[in-house]
């Protein structure tokens, strides 16, 4: 679909929000609470925070929540029965205030959750989600979207992208059919596209490395002292994975209450030492350097090769969340340099 451009007046933004809210959609938007900005269910436009680079957690939980019911069950000594999940009653959601990188992040999740076996629960949630992104006018040193094929005003993955222009109004780019449907809820709010250039309203994110140097040469550095060097200070928590928009690794656990229970899909992390541990105690990824390598290689080698998508969108959340300063772009620059040796 060709991208259609419109103008939305500054004052009309709230009206658009109200229209969608009145339409019965659950509105998830960035909210500042106890100093942190994160996506939350909002009732009023006033709750939305617009002064943030990125939320601490990514937007992935709308389609891949930290806890997802995958099967209900009943069990007693002599009978047990699995009960399917009704995905038809998942709510219609609008993700409001997503950054372009986060929107691209859903591509990686899609690739994983549809790799031959289509995960109906993830897909049902995503299908009911509309993504209204806002271009980035601010960035920090941890941002590197431009190094992984992204762009602070990128349209990929969003249904609608809004870019604030110099007078405070918004350039609206309608990217998908879903986006069109949203505009159709309040056509009166939209005017002819402004002439002002989009790019000059975007933050500048310098390119830090050439991602192809890494994705196309990964075999060269599987065995490399770099992994040990980089991961000595890694303490093996899951902060990076849990804030990451593309990390999809999960655990499955049962929780019962009496004879009823649910089987849950829970976020998990390849950086945890027990992640790959066999019952026998044997662990294929025994040391942190192997687990760190898995994290990087999964995103920059295995996913590009198997799923045709780079598993990193350059948001830098992992770097910001890491308690011990495992700065991902610094490590990627090291890898890219290693290849040139």
């Amino acid at each position: 679909m060709e991208i259609e451009k419109k103008l939305l007046k500054k004052a009309s933004l709230e009206k658009l929000f109200e229209k969608l809210k009145a339409d019965g959609k659950k509105m998830y938007a960035p909210v500042k609470k106890d100093k942190l900005v994160n996506f939350a269910l909002v009732d009023t436009f006033g709750e939305i925070c617009d002064d943030y680079i990125l939320t601490v957690k990514s937007a992935k939980s709308v389609a891949f929540p930290k806890i997802e019911k995958i099967v209900d069950y009943e069990h007693s000594k002599n009978s047990s029965k699995a009960i399917d999940i009704d995905v038809s009653n998942f709510p219609e959601v609008v993700l409001w205030g997503v950054r372009p990188c986060d929107a691209v992040g859903f591509d990686s999740l899609d690739a994983i959750f549809t790799w031959d076996y289509k995960d109906n629960i993830y897909l049902a949630r995503l299908e009911k989600t509309s993504i209204i992104s806002f271009s980035c006018f601010k960035s920090d040193n941890n941002c590197f979207c431009t190094s992984v094929n992204g762009n602070p005003g990128g349209t990929k993955g969003s249904d609608i992208l809004l870019t604030k222009i110099s007078n405070g109004d918004y350039l609206v780019e309608i990217i998908t059919e879903k986006g069109k449907q949203i505009i159709a809820k309040a056509p009166e709010l939209f005017e002819a596209a402004p002439t002002e250039e989009k790019d000059k309203n975007l933050t500048n994110v310098p390119i830090k490395f050439n991602v192809k140097d890494i994705t196309e040469n990964s075999a060269k550095f599987f065995e490399n002292d770099l992994w040990v060097e980089q991961s000595l200070r890694c303490i093996g928590c899951g902060a990076c994975a849990f804030v990451c928009p593309t990390c999809a690794c999960f655990d499955i656990q049962d929780e019962s209450a009496g004879k009823n229970g649910t089987r849950l899909r829970l976020w998990d992390s390849c950086c945890f030492s027990l992640f790959t541990m066999h019952t026998s105690g044997h662990n294929p990824r025994e040391v942190q350097s192997q687990r760190w390598r898995q994290r990087i290689m999964h995103k920059f080698s295995y996913m590009p090769e198997r799923l045709n998508v780079v598993g990193c969108i350059g948001c830098g959340r992992c770097s910001r969340a890491c308690p011990v300063d495992m700065n991902i772009s610094e490590h990627l620059i090291n890898l890219a340099e290693e290849v040139k040796k």
Binding site: I112, W115, D251, T276, Y302, E305
Partner: peptide, 24 residues
């Protein structure tokens, strides 16, 4: 090969040996 698995169909991220997924 036997590796720890949760899903069995290439999503949970446990069983891969390099780019090869034992489950798939």
């Amino acid at each position: 090969l036997e590796n720890r698995m949760k899903c069995g169909f290439g999503k949970c991220g446990r069983c891969n040996v390099g780019k090869v997924f034992v489950c798939k």
